[in-house]
Amino acid sequence: MFKIQRRAICALLLFAGLAPVHFASASNAVPEGPVRFVAPFVPGGTADVLARTIGQRLGSKYHRTFVVENKPGMGGNLGAAAVAQSKPDGSTLLLGTIGIHSTHSIYPKLQYNPDKDIQPIVILGGVPCVVAVNPSRPFHNLKELIAYAKANPGKLTFGSAGTGSSTHMVGELFQQAAGIKLTHVPYKGSAQAMNDLMGGQIDMMFELLTTATPFVTSGKIRGLAVTSKNRFTLLPNLPTVSEAAVPGFEGLGWFTVATASGVSKEIVAQYNKDINEILREPDLQKTWEGLALQIIGGSAEDARRYVASETVKWKKVIQTANIKSE
């Protein structure tokens, strides 16, 4: 089953032109030599594809190799810790997520302090989720699912990419908004969870559109709604959660490029400028659309403010649900 997903991801990578690159330096601010780009989840997910896309384009600008390293675990915090503890010279980057920047309080014994040891360079954008169920389950719309969940508290299981990940937190936000109780089953990445959803070992997921869309369109899972404010072009027939059952609901996963807090303002500013340019490159717009990425961009200071605001939002969800690491 995973091979199907990898083919879909590979198609996106090929479309973006992601071949190995070795180019000459375009900036004196960024240090010479190879750059390690940590994607803190297993290969094949949205974070992995974003890291490879951004890394390839930065490599072409700086005339050097960007090596993507997958380091999953602890909702992305295992990989983030490696970046936090790296040499603060800009030679190590992180593909950041909600789990790293805003829901790390779930893990009280981390080997680093995400608030102090990691700094966001830029917010890449947000990605909606699909509320999806195994096709054998008797839910054909969101109201049916909610009615069943209310009558059977805790019986339905939902998988995620890990505790504190966006696919977990959007599920928690949905439960609180809908007034239901589901049972969370964390995995080490969405690919494993998706395989179990298709196999019927779990009932449902709140999976990012990027990885869920091929399985919804092929009928391997049943999409009930999307978690964005508006319907999404990749799955135009799916209503929003707000339309279908929970007015006003919105829940997005979002992604950053980040680095160690000790990296200089000059290097951060250079990366920020060049990544913003990459986000606007005309030949990548269809790639972003295929990834369901709603571009945000902006300055490093904008990124810090965004992270701070989102941390307040998700802290309330964590406290209300009394979420702790397993």
Results as ranks from 00 to 15, higher is better:
Lys273Glu: 08
Val263Gly: 14
Ser242Tyr: 00
Pro247His: 05
Asp196Lys: 07
Ser264Gly: 13
Asn230Asp: 11
Glu277Gly: 05
Ala260Glu: 08
Asp274Met: 06
Pro236Trp: 01
Met194Pro: 00
Tyr271Met: 11
Phe215Pro: 00
Asp203Thr: 02
Thr211Glu: 15
Phe249Tyr: 11
Phe249Cys: 00
Phe232Ser: 10
Leu197Met: 12
Thr210Asn: 13
Gln192Lys: 14
Met198Gly: 08
Phe215Trp: 09
Ala193Gly: 15
Leu235Pro: 12
Ser261Leu: 06
Thr240Glu: 12
Asn195Ala: 15
Ile202Phe: 07
Lys220Gly: 06
Met198Val: 13
Glu207Val: 01
Pro236Val: 02
Glu243Pro: 13
Ile275Tyr: 12
Thr227Ile: 10
Met198Leu: 01
Met204Cys: 10
Glu277Ser: 12
Asn237Lys: 00
Ser242Val: 03
Met205Lys: 12
Phe215Lys: 01
Asn237Leu: 03
Leu234Phe: 06
Ala260Asp: 07
Glu243Met: 08
Gly219Tyr: 04
Ser242Asp: 01
Ile221Tyr: 03
Thr233Cys: 13
Leu235Glu: 07
Thr240Arg: 07
Ile267Thr: 11
Ser264Arg: 06
Ala193Thr: 04
Gly219His: 07
Thr213Glu: 10
Leu209Tyr: 00
Glu250Lys: 09
Gly200Ser: 10
Gly253Trp: 11
Gly199Glu: 09
Val246Phe: 09
Ile221Lys: 01
Gly200Tyr: 12
Tyr271Ser: 09
Glu250Pro: 10
Asn237Gly: 04
Ile278Ser: 03
Asn195Pro: 01
Gly253Met: 06
Val263Cys: 08
Ile267His: 04
Asn237Arg: 05
Gln201Val: 02
Glu207Leu: 04
Gly251His: 05
Ile267Gln: 14
Ser261Cys: 07
Ser218Asn: 07
Thr227Cys: 09
Glu243Asn: 13
Ile267Cys: 13
Thr256Gly: 10
Glu207Trp: 02
Asp274Asn: 07
Leu209Met: 15
Ser264Leu: 15
Phe206Ser: 04
Gly251Ser: 13
Gly262Gln: 03
Ala245Leu: 09
Thr256Arg: 05
Ala258His: 01
Glu281Gln: 15
Gln192His: 11
Asp203Met: 13
Ile275Thr: 01
Ala245Phe: 12
Val226Thr: 05
Lys273Cys: 02
Arg222Ala: 08
Gly248Cys: 03
Ser261Glu: 15
Gly223Met: 00
Asp196Ile: 01
Lys265Tyr: 05
Gly262Thr: 02
Gln201Pro: 07
Ala245Asn: 11
Leu235Thr: 05
Val263Glu: 09
Thr227Asn: 05
Phe249Trp: 06
Phe232Asn: 12
Met205Gln: 11
Thr210Gln: 11
Asn272Gln: 11
Met194Ile: 14
Gly199Met: 12
Ala212Ser: 12
Met194Asn: 05
Asn230Ala: 10
Ile278Asp: 03
Ser242Met: 04
Gly253Phe: 10
Pro214Tyr: 10
Phe206Glu: 02
Thr211Met: 15
Gln192Arg: 08
Lys265Val: 06
Glu281Thr: 15
